[in-house]
Design a protein around this nucleic acid. Sequence first.
DNA 1: CGAGTGATTGACGCAGATCAAGCGAAGTGG
DNA 2: CCACTTCGCTTGATCTGCGTCAATCACTCG
Lengths: 243, 243
Amino acid sequence: MTTPCSACPLRRREHFVEMTRDEVRQTEAFKAGEMTIEPGTHLLIEGAGSAQLYTALSGMGLRYKSLADGSRQVLNIIFPGDFVGLQAGVMGEMKHSVVARTQMTLCVFDRNEFYSFVRSSPNRGFDVTWLAAMEEHFLGEALATVGQRDASDRIAWALVRIYQRGQALGMVNGGGLMPFPFRQQDLADLLGLSLVHTNKTLARLRRHNLVRWQDGQLAIPGLEPMAEMAGLELEPPPRRPLI
Amino acid sequence: MTTPCSACPLRRREHFVEMTRDEVRQTEAFKAGEMTIEPGTHLLIEGAGSAQLYTALSGMGLRYKSLADGSRQVLNIIFPGDFVGLQAGVMGEMKHSVVARTQMTLCVFDRNEFYSFVRSSPNRGFDVTWLAAMEEHFLGEALATVGQRDASDRIAWALVRIYQRGQALGMVNGGGLMPFPFRQQDLADLLGLSLVHTNKTLARLRRHNLVRWQDGQLAIPGLEPMAEMAGLELEPPPRRPLI
DNA sequence: CGAGTGATTGACGCAGATCAAGCGAAGTGG
DNA sequence: CCACTTCGCTTGATCTGCGTCAATCACTCG
């Protein structure tokens, strides 16, 4: 039923760094099982400890924090290959929640094994650190975007970042479309904007034919000007390790 | 001239987790030297690779990103005991800059040794991961604050967080004052506010006798209501590893 | 004493929040 | 098969928190 790591379809993608035979074996030993969840399901809940850690195999979701007044900050989007639950792994408790936006399949790991997994090989420990540092970098960029840029620049930043990730993962089809199973409210909560203003700003980007987003699919005809607005280079993201 | 790790004054503080004799020895071996820099000196520059990593021994500074339009996002504040340069360590290039706001003394490590240091003991590797995860958590909280809260709540959040950190490090003196060698512009850039609005909001907090900040010293007479505004609990932060 | 740096305060304007209403598509149940 | 609800998207009107501009003040320093 479950995919063995040796046959993992993600590992083949060149977006991920190769693993040695030993690393595959260690990961396989770490893996406790596989699970599939439906859209809208919460995988992890803020404040709760979790006995499991996950790697997304397919599907998309998002991480968010909710505040006392009921508002919500989306921290980032979860793509296939993302390692989920590191905070619970090292700190014992999640500081944000994770919810699925499509059906998702996930590798399940046992939190109790995490420490020994990291020990198992210094390379794997280093990989986890690399992922954490990358996440830190991403959040810093998000903070700079939300703190310093106006609405259209923020939207451009988010969409370009997401699209780049989709490209790296081969999720963009021949027509330049990638799956984008989110609501405008999700984008608004990611960028610190109201839903209404997000909608109006998106409408403007659409009118200028910079963005196409409908039926859960995203295309960016104006990728270059959008990246320009976002202050981003159009380079493929670095290859990342897979846990 | 340089302090041996075995005599490190920080390690004694209970804010930091104890280290085994072996860990102290490994860290000592990793340490390449010590340096002191003056206020305003840039320790690391965004985009540049760095041959060194650092741990702050004394003094304070801040990390920031600068944007194309000249604006600046402060990512966080550097306290004694903070490990600086992890991104350069794992990714080869800094994604933000670091500048000193007081005179700072720093332990210097050689980036080339970083990988073998992490290997040297699985515990030390885990510590680095822990720090990265903590940083990620902090940035997530900052993002939620900047994205979702109004000016006075943002300021309350930042000042309470900073003050808590100061308490944990024993930087708060009998009068409830801690050193706070920053400008209002720094706080504004941390919180995504303009200098003017930051100033006016601070004035209001001062009038209500919630905050005292002058001559580079900070006190929070209204710590409880401030924490309430900030949506924070008044617990001491978790003990952190020291690199 | 003039120059530079940071804090402060008032006046004004706007980006974006809030309020409100309507629309189409997809259930759902009687 | 048709009312009725729900959910997400859209759009107009109005309001406001915060940005911007500009001037002043207190200090420090050469």
